[in-house]
Every structure is written in structure tokens, then in C-alpha cells.
Design a protein around this nucleic acid. Structure first.
Lengths: 108, 108
DNA sequence: GGGTTATTTGGTAATATTACCAAATAGCCA
DNA sequence: TGGCTATTTGGTAATATTACCAAATAACCC
């Protein structure tokens, strides 16, 4: 593996890592409908607001989210619509795993 | 966030986490062309074989990879082709980040 | 300016991840 | 069976992630 290849994989990993957490995936799901600010998301999630803020910041720094400032609020939104499709691939893996599990359950 | 929603996000996170590492993304890239066994991948990667084996095992348990046993070898392959599309979304984010960086570089 | 609200940042403890080495397991073939 | 090769598993140290609380910042409005 040469160095520039490795850099590509590191860049990809950084973005994928930024989504690799249930709370972040919840946030992404919510932001598919519309923009939200930290306090709104915090209320839905039930963690400390500083925790939610940090999750948002990681995703923003990875380029997944963008912000819009309005008065006293900061609204977060998805930077890239393709994430929807991305998740449909993940869900296909989940379904396929479930099928496998059901097969195993039938056998045992 | 109700409990069954959270379970979906946890399942998704498990699969996404299983890809969220540069070495694993390298492996996925390689497995797009054809199957490989641990020792072949280890040679390309240059880490300890036990480390590579563990990376493969995480992805297999997440349902991303499948195995085929042949004689004394175990060949790993992608369980789901859609991962290719998934990564093209990630690369779109990388490109968009790069554009943003270039804009910033022009300004400063 | 000063109070108020929204948000981020710093510090820290608990937990998870990753890499290596050494040892165990699995399956082939003489 | 017994040795050989391929692979996985267990143990452990170094590092990274995540959550909370407390404090800092930022922007609005009077």
C-alpha cells in the first residue's frame, strides 16, 4: 500500500468514522427532513447538550454537515444528499444479516 | 428517540464502524476486484497477520464480508456490492471538502 | 454596556479500539 | 497419526472515543 493510497483511505475513514455512532446516525436521520439546532436535537436525544454539540462538531469537521447562523441560533443541515443512498446500502446489509439469522434459527 | 429506533441506529452504527478504519477500507477496495485470503492481504498491508485477521473478523461479523473455504485457505469477499456506491458518496464528500479548502486557500 | 440565551470548549473518568506477540486451532497430506 | 501450513484467539499496553460537569464564548436585545 503506497502512501497516497493510504491517505485516501485515511480521508475516507475520517468521514465514515464521523457517522459511526448511533447518536450521530439519529442526527443524520433527523437532518434529512430539515435543519435543527443543537438544543432541539438535544431534547430529542436526551444526552447532555455539550455531548450533542461535540457530535455535531465532529460531523461538521468531517464535511458531512454544514451550518447556517440565524439570530442567536446555529442550524445544522446535511452537506450532501447522497448520504441517504449511503444508508440504504447499510440497511441492505442489515436485512441480509437478518435473513441469515432467520435461516440459522430455522436450522437450529 | 424510542427504543426500537435506537436499535436501528445501533445496527447501522455497527456496520459503519466495521468500515471506519483505513486498513479496513483498503481491504474493501481490494476485495472489490476479487477474493483474497488473510496472508495475501497481510503481505499488501504490512501489519501483523493477527491484526489483519481481526480486521477481517470484525467486517465478517458485521455482515460486510463473506468467506469461502478452499483446501487450507479461507478466502474473503464482499457480501454486498452496494458498498461500492456507498464509497462513491464518501468520495463526493471528500471532493466537496477539497473544494472548500481550495476556496479558503484562495481567500487567505 | 449588561443581562440573557444559545452554543462551544476544557477537563476528566470510564470505556472501546487497535496493534503486537505468543499460543491455540483447523485442515490438509504424506 | 503426525507434521505442516493457514488462520484465529488470548493477553496486554498504548491510544482514541465518549459522556458528564463547569466554564468560556458569541450574539442578541434592552
Amino acid at each position: 500500500m503506497n502512501k497516497s493510497d493510504f491517505m485516501l483511505y485515511e480521508m475516507r475513514a475520517r468521514i465514515i468514522k464521523a457517522m459511526a455512532h448511533p447518536v450521530r446516525l439519529f442526527i443524520i436521520d433527523k437532518l434529512m427532513e430539515k435543519e435543527y439546532c443543537v438544543c432541539e436535537l438535544t431534547e430529542m436525544i436526551g444526552l447532555d447538550i455539550s455531548t450533542v454539540s461535540k457530535h455535531l462538531s465532529v460531523m461538521k469537521n468531517a464535511g458531512i454537515l454544514k451550518i447556517r447562523k440565524e439570530k442567536n441560533n446555529i442550524y445544522y443541515g446535511l452537506a450532501c444528499d447522497c448520504i441517504t443512498k449511503y444508508l440504504s446500502c447499510i440497511d441492505r446489509v442489515i436485512k441480509s444479516n437478518a435473513r441469515y439469522h432467520n435461516q440459522v434459527l430455522k436450522i437450529i
